[in-house]
Every structure is written in C-alpha cells, then in structure tokens.
C-alpha cells in the first residue's frame, strides 16, 4: 500500500485573498521579506494495492474529480510505499 499526500493551492494567476491577508500579517510582524504567500490544503490518504503506476494514476484521477477544482486550483501529489513490495 501507499501513503499519499496531496497539496492543493490556488493557481498562480488567480487571486488568493487568504494568502494576501496572511502575507499582510507577516509583514506587520516585521517579516517584510516574506512574499508570494499562498494558502492551500494538505490531504493525506492511504491507497491499498501494490502497483505504483496504478496508485498514482488513481490519485491523479481523485485530484481531477474531487480533491482539487482545476478551474482555480493546482495540485501536486507524492506517493510513498509503506508496506509490501513494489511490482
């Protein structure tokens, strides 16, 4: 099986009001050198099976269908095998 992680963030060309607010707060705390703050989501899940290619394809399908709204969001995935042998 695989331990999967998914990062979802607002696309670069789409305004991220939360990221802007956080950046403003960082600046007011004196971290004026912090910039380009994007607020996103982090998801982790376990995928049963031992075929890495299938698991990764399934994970991308999950992102496209549900986990991210690709109109405004980008996603990136990581997959780590945690048990059993890879095919």
């Amino acid at each position: 099986m695989f331990q999967a992680t998914v990062h979802v963030t607002i696309k670069e060309n789409v305004l991220d009001p939360q990221g802007q607010a956080v950046e403003g707060a960082l600046h007011s705390l004196g971290f004026g050198h912090a910039r380009d703050v994007r607020v996103g989501k982090f998801l982790e899940l376990t995928i049963d099976g031992d075929n890495r290619e299938e698991a990764e394809a399934d994970l991308r399908e999950m992102c496209e269908k549900l986990l991210a709204n690709t109109v405004i969001e980008d996603y990136r995935v990581e997959l780590v095998e945690v048990d059993g042998e890879e095919q």
């Binding site: 607002i10 305004l15 991220d16 009001p17 939360q18 709204n69 109109v71």
Partner: peptide, 10 residues
C-alpha cells in the same frame, strides 16, 4: 462555467 473563491474581504 467558472468557480467560487472566498470573498475578497475574507
């Protein structure tokens, strides 16, 4: 078509 984002004012 399109999508919703959080309000600009949060």
């Amino acid at each position: 078509p399109g999508a919703m984002r959080v309000n600009e004012s949060l």
